[in-house]
Design a binder for these strands. Structure first.
Length: 283
DNA sequence: ATGGGGGCCTGCCGGC
DNA sequence: TGCCGGCAGGCCCCCA
């Protein structure tokens, strides 16, 4: 899925279009994604104004004027498309309904938001805004990787007691919330740490370097407008560019980009997921 | 208690 | 050309 930079890119694309707008019509084409939609979802969204569109980890959070918050998760293959005429920044006509268009929201300014998700690993939920910290999707999440809360002191303290691989520690959303497979691979490469190294076996110095490297990778990806892989698109349908900047992800067998390194990028499977790394640069 | 693996879904791509 | 296996950005759940 879209990891943090892709979700943030979607959020930034949606803000000028739907923030402050009222939802005038809701179309729900099936009862669930990964889980059943919340009770009365269409009715609870109808006639609500989106007062603020936020992001927490990989979740989009739309605060509604009535005191509830609409949560959207894109899973692996979810995307949102915006269409509408006379809107300046986006001028496409509403497209004909596509396969896997599961939820369609029409706004007071004529904008239409279509949620499309072939694999249906995504999720939607609605909760009382003041009870956000109790929401089942959010309550266990660790700090945002771009916040000051995620710093070298915090991370070294958490990591020193973890016997699992650094790869799996970084993917654990309770430890830091928003990283996924791509940006973990890229951050570990930048820091020269092997994905299979046990977190507790890595020195404070190296763990400390990982923190700013994670920030840098995420920030560069956000600046580039996210990564467009198989099915990610910006909210307005444009493609992101960060995938052209991957050093290791998806580059098995290609030369390591480190100057003077003559190794090829390798792939291994950890916890059922591919890790891409340079066997020479990452120890 | 922690970590590893399976499962949820569909689509796409490469090999035979 | 057609079929089949492998693989995909996430995350929950079960088992050891």
């Amino acid at each position: 899925m879209p990891e943090l930079p892709e979700v943030e890119t979607v959020r930034r694309g949606l803000v000028p279009v739907i923030q402050g707008q009222r939802i005038e019509h809701v179309q729900v084409n099936r009862p669930d994604l990964r889980w059943p939609f919340p009770k009365g979802m269409a009715k609870r969204l109808s006639q609500q104004t989106i007062t603020l569109l936020r992001r927490r980890s990989k979740y989009l959070l739309a605060d509604l004027s009535g005191g509830e918050t609409f949560l959207i998760h894109l899973g692996m293959s979810g995307r949102v498309l915006i269409s509408g005429e006379h809107l300046g920044t986006f001028v496409t006509n509403h497209p004909r309904k596509q396969n896997h268009d599961h939820v369609v929201l029409d706004f007071s300014n004529g904008a239409r938001l279509t949620y499309n998700d072939p694999r249906r690993f995504g999720a939607m939920d609605i909760f009382e805004t003041v009870k956000e910290s109790q929401n089942k999707h959010l309550h266990h999440l660790g700090p945002e990787p771009l916040s000051n809360e995620f710093n070298a002191l915090y991370f070294t303290n958490v990591a020193k007691s973890r016997k699992s691989s650094i790869k799996n520690v970084l993917l654990d959303q309770r430890i830091v919330a928003g990283l996924g497979n791509i940006y973990v691979c890229e951050s570990l490469y930048r820091t020269g740490i092997s994905p299979k190294k046990k977190a507790c076996d890595i020195s404070r110095e190296r763990l400390g370097k990982l923190v700013p490297n994670i920030r840098t990778v995420l920030e560069k990806a956000i600046t580039a407008g996210g990564s467009s892989l198989r099915d990610f698109r910006h909210a307005d349908g444009e493609l992101g560019y960060f995938q052209h900047s991957f050093a290791v992800y998806g580059r098995e067998g290609k030369p390591c980009p480190t100057p003077d390194c003559d190794s090829d990028i390798a792939r291994m499977v950890q916890s059922g997921r591919s890790s891409f790394y340079c066997p020479k640069c990452q120890k």
